[in-house]
């Protein structure tokens, strides 16, 4: 692949990048943080959470930094009053969609949703909570899927399909009824295609996919090694 050098402007600052990089990669390379949730290095970027939306001069709509290719001469704004407001609203919407009760969650303190809420300054939520009745799947010998904490980032789906190759997880239904399901919507423990590798658990940003045997606040995760593995494999199509 051609490694042509380009330069783009991010928040007024001129930043060097390589052709083929996304705005997110160019920003990270220059030490600029853009909030993300569904993004995980090494996995196909899907632009689903919309947290990383940025303003690009000359383009009428907001673009997700994780999928938009950086183009030579582009001028990008990653932080503004509107962007911050919108990012807050994304978090608010996620918080009301399902049952995110931090105080009794094993990922309390080690949760990306929580950290994002803190860093974006979400102190209250303007919308009524949905309080959906969602199950917890304890059928697997080692792991648990708690739908109440899921944000449908689909990292688990992608890591299982692209890195492990087992393709156990998929998103079922549409709209607000979407759910992560294993195989043919059966208890995880009965999904014969699961290799028990645990990559999905490590990739999950919240307390939705967790390991058994951890109490409240005890569940920590690391996905950097999985990302490194994925990048090395060239798993991204």
């Amino acid at each position: 692949m051609a490694q042509k050098k380009i330069s783009i402007r991010i928040d007024g600052e001129l930043v060097g990048a390589t052709e083929g990089m996304t705005i997110l990669e160019a920003a990270e390379g220059a030490g600029k943080e853009i909030p993300t949730l569904c993004h995980m290095d090494g996995l196909t970027a899907v632009g689903a959470c919309r947290l990383c939306v940025v303003e690009v001069a000359g383009i009428g709509r907001l673009l997700p930094a994780c999928t938009t290719p950086a183009q030579d001469g582009m001028s990008v704004t990653t932080v503004s009053a509107q962007l911050t407001r919108y990012r807050r609203m994304v978090i608010e919407l996620l918080l009301v969609e399902r049952n995110h009760v931090c105080s009794v969650c094993v990922s309390n303190g080690h949760c990306e949703l929580q950290s994002l809420a803190k860093s974006l300054g979400v102190s209250s939520v303007r919308y009524p909570y949905n309080y959906p009745r969602l199950p917890v799947d304890l059928s697997h010998t080692r792991f648990v899927l708690d739908h109440n904490r899921c944000v449908l980032c689909t990292r688990c789906v992608r890591v299982c399909a692209e890195v492990e190759g087992a393709h156990v997880w998929e998103v079922t239904n549409r709209g607000i009824k979407c759910r992560i399901t294993s195989e043919m919507n059966q208890p995880w423990g009965s999904a014969s295609s699961c290799t028990n590798c645990g990559k999905c658990v490590q990739s999950c940003p919240t307390g939705a996919l967790i390991e058994k045997g951890f109490a409240v606040e005890e569940m920590t995760k690391r996905h950097e090694n999985i990302s490194a593995l994925a990048l090395a494999k060239g798993a991204r199509p």
Binding site: A161, H167, V168, W169, E170, V171, T172, N173, R174, T181, S182, E183, M184, N185, S193
Partner: peptide, 11 residues
């Protein structure tokens, strides 16, 4: 993958 077929059937 069965998960994919199920996802299509429910979508």
């Amino acid at each position: 993958p069965p998960a994919r077929i199920y996802s299509v059937a429910t979508f």
